[in-house]
């Protein structure tokens, strides 16, 4: 930092500007430091200690245990399960959400005029709902004799007892998450599609290319930056997977829907703050890693 100040520090106008700018940032900085940056750091520090609920009022008066909390985590089959479940949720949930939202965005962008705004609002509506309320409602719809199995029976499928079945509980939650979230990538894709000049498609159709081919070779590559944004946004939101198991399954049946977030909350409830911090830091690492991978995936090929 010193180098930059040394470079330009001699300029009194800049020094004054810096002072003014930081005064503008001051209220934000106070809260951002205290409730944003510091907890991120503190979480890391706490994950190396044996802090428990009883130490709350003396948070520095705790034992340093190195990586012990992390060892405990990866020794605990429940945590490993939580990690795998969270990845399952993300790895299956995100592509499905993206494909559905892209299909609808393309349909909305296909030149239809009538009711376009109406459709957009309707498809977006689930995004504004509280996950808690949604989970409460879907919990009933997923009952063995509930609405969803009723609808499936209508087309001749005998549905499972979704939330009581260790195999189907997670897909049930993914379907619900897709329903609630696809509106977000839909509007982002829609904005991206509107940026694709129609002349490109016209040129392609003159060349005799099929719609599918022109979509694949023109639209998709142009949407790559949009796709990256969507993927990062969705993975941050899907990795926080917590409310759904809290309301719908309590992490069961047989730990099949327990997530890292839920696990961390449980440890917090037991008063094991150090372990809870370590679990949530694993989540931070996963987010960092996944964002990095997505940048690689969508950047290098363009």
């Amino acid at each position: 930092m010193t180098s930059i100040v040394a470079n330009r520090g001699g300029d009194p106008a800049r020094r004054r500007r810096t002072l003014v700018a930081w005064s503008f940032c001051l209220p934000f900085m106070v809260f951002f430091l205290a409730f944003g940056l510091w907890p991120v750091l503190a979480s890391l520090l706490m994950s190396f200690t044996d802090i428990r609920s009883r130490d709350l009022r003396t948070p520095v008066n705790v034992g340093f245990v190195g990586l012990e909390n992390y060892v405990t985590l990866f020794d605990d089959p429940t945590f490993v399960r939580a990690l795998l479940n969270t990845l399952y949720f993300v790895v299956v949930g995100i592509p499905v959400t993206m494909v559905i939202s892209l299909v609808i965005a393309v349909a909305l962008n296909s030149g239809i005029q009538r009711l376009k705004g109406f459709f957009r609002v309707g498809y977006f509506a689930p995004v504004v709902t509280s996950i808690i309320a949604v989970a409460v409602v879907w919990r009933y719809m997923y009952q063995g004799d509930g609405l969803i199995n009723g609808a499936l029976a209508f087309v001749g499928i005998h549905g499972p007892d979704w939330l009581n079945d260790p195999v189907w509980a997670m897909p049930a939650m993914i379907v619900m998450a897709v329903w609630r979230n696809f509106g977000i990538p839909m509007v982002i894709f829609l904005a991206g599609l509107q940026g694709v000049a129609p002349e490109l498609h016209e040129a392609a159709s003159v060349d005799g290319a099929s719609r599918w081919r022109s979509f694949r070779s023109i639209t998709l590559p142009l949407l790559r930056p949009t796709t990256l944004v969507v993927a990062v946004l969705l993975s941050i939101s899907y990795l926080q997977f917590f409310e759904e198991p809290f309301v719908m399954t309590g992490g069961g049946p047989l730990d099949s829907t327990i997530s890292i977030g839920y696990y961390a909350y449980e440890q917090f409830g037991f008063g094991l703050y150090g372990l809870a911090s370590a679990a949530s830091y694993v989540l931070v690492l996963v987010i960092a890693l996944l964002s990095f991978l997505q940048f690689r995936l969508f950047r290098t090929r363009s």
Partner: peptide
């Protein structure tokens, strides 16, 4: 920052 925090707080039970 991390290191300073550890040193300053004299972490230990």
């Amino acid at each position: 920052g991390v290191i300073t925090a550890f040193v300053l707080t004299g972490c230990g039970r």
